[in-house]
Each structure stands twice: as C-alpha cells, then as structure tokens.
C-alpha cells in the first residue's frame, strides 16, 4: 500500500476507535443526557438531512464564512502588500494597527450586531475583521522579508519596479500568504459561529446554541460535528492548493522520494 493510503487507513481507524469509546462510555459510565452517543448523534444528523432542516443553517454559516473570508483575505493581502512596500505609511499606521489588532474580536461582535443587524451581515463583518488581520500580518512580514539580493538581480537586468513586484515580491510572498490563509480557515468559521451565538435566527451557531438551550446534547454535538467536518474539509483543500503552488520548495520528503536504494 502507498504511504498515503496507509496514512488514511490509520486516520480512519483512530476515528472509529474514538467513536467506539464514546459509544461504550455512554449509558454505561456516563448518562447519555450529558454526552449523548455517536448512534444518537448520527441518527439526529440523518434525520435533519432527510427532512432538509439542516441545509438552511448550513447555507447561512457557509455564506457568512466564505464571504467574510474572501473579503478579509483580499483586503488583508492587499494592505499587506501596500504597507510592505510603503515604509512611511506603515510607520504612520503601526500603532493604530497594533491597537486595533489588540481588541478581542469577541468584544466587537455585539457592537457589529447593533450596527449591522442580527442577519448574516454582522457575522460577515466579524469574519472579515478576523481574516483581515491574520492575512495582513503574514503578507506584510512576507513582503518585508523578500531577499533584497533577489530584487537587485532583476534590477540589474533592467527590470522595472512593476516587473520586480510580479516576478520576485509576489512569488516570494506566496508561502506567507498561504500560511495566513491556512490559519484563517478555522478562525473564519469560529468568527461566524460566535456571531451567531450572540444573536441570530439561522446558522449552525444558532442551531448549536438553540439545541443547548433545550438541553439536547445530541443536537448540540451534531452541530459541532458538522462544524468540525467543514474545518477539516476546507483545510485539506487549502493544503492541497498550497502544495501545488509551492511545489518549488524543498521538502523533507522530496529527497527521500527521489533517492534510489
């Protein structure tokens, strides 16, 4: 079996083990009222899928997360490049950025609800803020850290500043941007869910909160399981895109892959 295939088998086995332990503990050691059980949770999930009631919540949360993620990433990356290349501007704005970044996001959530209503807009704004700072800081340090010698090589060849930006600065910053985006994925979802917890009428966060208020651990855990699945799937997608974009980077594996014994 390929190393990748073996890895997947081990991963699945670990998941099954966890679920089995949960199932065994539930009802024997701990009352299912507190921790529900995998069979109950999956039955619940199957039911809400069948009657279609989950899709509305899923769609709202996905909409808030992806819209906020896209806006936050684009503006964060854009500002990172702008400030990375305009030293004066960066120096002027520095204390404000530090201060703004220091505010806990959760403290902003109620304010956004006052300003933008209990609909998806307030959650989109919250996700934008979360993703903006993560991508901004990683892009900014990437742009500032670009090897001056590489830029000089092109300058000496007669490149314009624009060509240096496209052929050196941007590709050299891609690994940093990728890291920023990767870290942002779970935080974007957390931002949307936290917003929905505070005030909403739809969304997975609302669902989890609502189920908890009914003391339905089955429903709450079902919602949490969906959130976890979204994070895993989107992280995998980003990892895959990163590996493709950064295929020029030396990796530990590439050496052994090519070695002939």
């Amino acid at each position: 079996m390929s190393p990748r295939g073996r890895l997947l088998v081990y991963r699945a086995a670990f998941g099954v083990l966890l679920l089995a332990m949960w199932e065994l503990v539930s009802g024997r050691l701990i009352d299912p009222f507190w921790i529900s059980s995998p069979s109950r949770v999956f039955a619940y999930l199957w039911q809400v899928v069948r009657d279609g009631s989950i899709f509305g919540h899923l769609a709202v949360t996905l909409y808030e997360t992806t819209t906020g993620f896209l806006i936050g990433a684009v503006t964060g990356i854009g500002c990172g490049f702008l400030l990375g290349r305009r030293k004066i501007l960066a120096q002027v704005l520095d204390p404000y950025i530090v201060a703004f970044n220091g505010i806990p996001r959760i403290a902003l959530a109620p304010l956004f609800i006052i300003w933008f209503g209990i609909g998806p807009n307030s959650k989109v704004v919250l996700v934008v803020i979360v993703v903006f700072f993560l991508t901004f800081f990683s892009t900014y340090s990437g742009v500032k850290g670009v090897d001056l010698e590489l830029k000089n090589v092109l300058r000496i060849m007669g490149a314009t500043e624009r060509q240096i930006l496209v052929k050196v600065t941007i590709p050299a910053t891609v690994p940093w941007i990728a890291t920023g985006l990767k870290v942002s994925v779970p935080y974007a979802l957390v931002g949307a869910i936290v917003g929905e917890f505070i005030a909403a009428s739809k969304g997975l966060g609302y669902l989890i909160n609502y189920q908890t208020s009914l003391f339905s651990t089955t429903g709450a855990l079902g919602g949490i399981l969906i959130v976890a699945a979204i994070v895993v799937i989107s992280s995998e997608a980003i990892n895959w895109a990163e590996a493709y974009l950064l295929r020029w980077r030396p990796r530990e594996e590439t050496r052994t892959d090519r070695e002939v014994y």
Binding site: L150, V153, M157, K167, V168, P171, A172, V174
Partner: peptide, 12 residues
C-alpha cells in the same frame, strides 16, 4: 551584468 557571489536563483 553581475554574477553575484551567492547564486541568487529564484527558487520558484
């Protein structure tokens, strides 16, 4: 033209 001490090839 300038051939630098370090090779400075663009890694990507």
């Amino acid at each position: 033209g300038y051939v630098t001490q370090k090779d400075n090839l663009l890694p990507w």
